[in-house]
Amino acid sequence: MSDLFLGLISGTSADGIDAAIARFDDARPRARAELVFGRTYPWDAALRSRLVALGQQDADLSLDALGELETRVAEGFADAANRALADARLVAGDIAAIGSHGQTLRHRPQGCRGDGRHGFTLQLGDPSRIAERTGITTVADFRRRDVAAGGHGAPLLPALHAALLQDAHEQRAVLNLGGIANLTLLPGGGGDVRGFDTGPANGLMDAWCLRHTGAAFDRDGAMAAGGRVDAALLARLRDDPWFALPPPKSSGRDQFHLAWVEAALQGGEAPADVQATLLALSVATITDALRAAQPATTRLIACGGGVHNGALMRALAAALPGTQVESSAAHGLDPDHMEAMGFAWLARRTLLGMPGNLPLVTGAAGPRILGGIYPA
Rank of each mutant, 00 (worst) to 15 (best):
D3Y: 04
L4G: 14
L6W: 10
L6S: 12
G7D: 10
I9Y: 07
I9T: 07
T12K: 00
G16I: 04
G16L: 06
G16S: 00
R23V: 12
D26H: 11
R28V: 10
R32T: 10
R32H: 10
E34Q: 15
E34S: 15
T40K: 04
P42I: 09
W43R: 02
A46L: 09
R48G: 04
V52L: 08
A53R: 13
G55Q: 06
G55N: 07
Q57K: 13
D58I: 04
L61P: 05
L63K: 08
A65N: 02
G67L: 07
G67Y: 07
V73I: 13
A74N: 01
A78I: 08
D79S: 12
A81F: 09
R83E: 13
A84E: 10
R89A: 15
G93V: 01
G93H: 05
I95L: 03
H101P: 08
Q103G: 09
T104P: 11
R106H: 12
H107W: 13
R108H: 15
P109C: 06
P109G: 08
Q110T: 14
G114D: 13
G116Q: 08
L122A: 11
Q123E: 02
L124A: 10
S128W: 04
R129P: 13
V147H: 08
G150P: 14
H152A: 07
P155C: 03
P155Q: 02
L157D: 05
L157Q: 09
P158K: 01
A159H: 03
A159N: 00
H161C: 12
H161P: 00
L164C: 13
A168M: 13
A168H: 14
R172A: 10
A173M: 11
V174N: 01
G178N: 00
A181D: 01
G189Q: 06
D192M: 11
R194E: 14
R194T: 15
D197L: 07
D197I: 04
T198R: 01
P200H: 01
P200G: 04
A201V: 10
L204V: 13
D206Y: 05
W208T: 15
R211T: 05
R219T: 09
D220H: 13
A225H: 01
G226E: 14
R228G: 14
R228I: 08
A235D: 08
A235N: 05
R236W: 05
L237Q: 02
P241E: 13
P248A: 02
P248D: 05
K249I: 07
D254N: 15
Q255F: 14
H257W: 06
W260Y: 05
V261K: 00
T277G: 13
L279Y: 03
L279G: 05
A280H: 02
A280W: 03
L281P: 09
V283L: 07
I286K: 00
D288I: 09
D288G: 06
L290G: 10
Q294W: 12
P295D: 11
T297I: 12
I301M: 12
G304K: 03
G304I: 01
G306F: 06
H308Y: 14
G310A: 06
L316A: 02
A319M: 06
P321W: 09
G322D: 10
T323Q: 09
V325P: 04
A329Q: 11
A330Y: 01
D334A: 05
D334Y: 00
P335E: 10
A340V: 01
A344N: 00
A344V: 02
A347D: 07
R349Q: 11
T350V: 15
T350A: 15
L351S: 08
L352N: 15
N357C: 06
A364H: 03
I369V: 15
L370S: 08
G371H: 05
P375I: 01
